[in-house]
């Protein structure tokens, strides 16, 4: 992770020399110029990439310099007409899967998606079969009426008296 931040830092500093660092305002102006479909794509993609310096936030939600730079790159590639898959590939090949906010659907990471799904399905089936579908057979004490209980107790008392 430290390595990633280092490379990102290098990239940010280099690109700052080449072109002015993007700001929230300059990005907003550029987003305005995109088509509606691409605006949605921009929101979607930058919500999938994590902010490297904050915790828990996507680059869309953060205004840290790193995040603005990543968003600028997403924008740039959208302006060049690249597809969502190409942009995702660009980021994962450059920074690794680390940049993503949810586990990719491949390799060992499949487990993260697989386990909850399997448990949800199997568990639901189990609950259905074991509990819900079973016939009600309520022979518990609650179904005994009070009179019956009283009668039982009196029988018991009677027995003891005889004994």
């Amino acid at each position: 992770m430290k390595q990633c931040i280092f490379w990102l830092g290098l990239w940010v500093s280099v690109s700052t020399v080449v072109q002015a660092a993007p700001t929230e305002a300059s990005l907003a102006v550029r987003v305005e110029q995109l088509s509606r479909a691409k605006q949605v794509l921009y929101q979607q993609l930058s919500d999938e990439l994590r902010c490297p310096t904050c915790t828990g936030l996507s680059v869309l939600q953060s205004d840290a310099p790193f995040s603005l730079q990543i968003r600028a790159t997403v924008l740039e590639q959208l302006e060049q007409g690249k597809s969502a898959a190409e942009i995702r590939d660009f980021f994962t090949s450059r920074y690794g899967l680390w940049i993503l906010r949810s586990p990719p659907v491949e390799g060992i990471h499949l487990l993260a998606w697989f386990i909850p799904t399997v448990i949800a399905v199997v568990g639901a089936l189990a609950v259905w079969i074991v509990f819900w579908r079973r016939r009600r057979s309520s022979m518990g004490e609650r179904t005994r009426s009070r009179e019956e209980l009283v009668a039982l107790m009196q029988q018991e008392l009677e027995k003891r008296r005889r004994a």
Binding site: I115, P116, R136
Partner: peptide, 28 residues
């Protein structure tokens, strides 16, 4: 329990479903 097995389509089964949902959520 002193009551025999109950379940079936009933409130107790619905509450078991609740258990299942809460625990699945917790697992995720």
């Amino acid at each position: 329990a002193d009551a025999q097995k109950v379940w079936g389509v009933s409130k107790e089964s619905a509450l078991v479903v609740t258990q299942f949902l809460l625990q699945t959520f917790a697992l995720i």
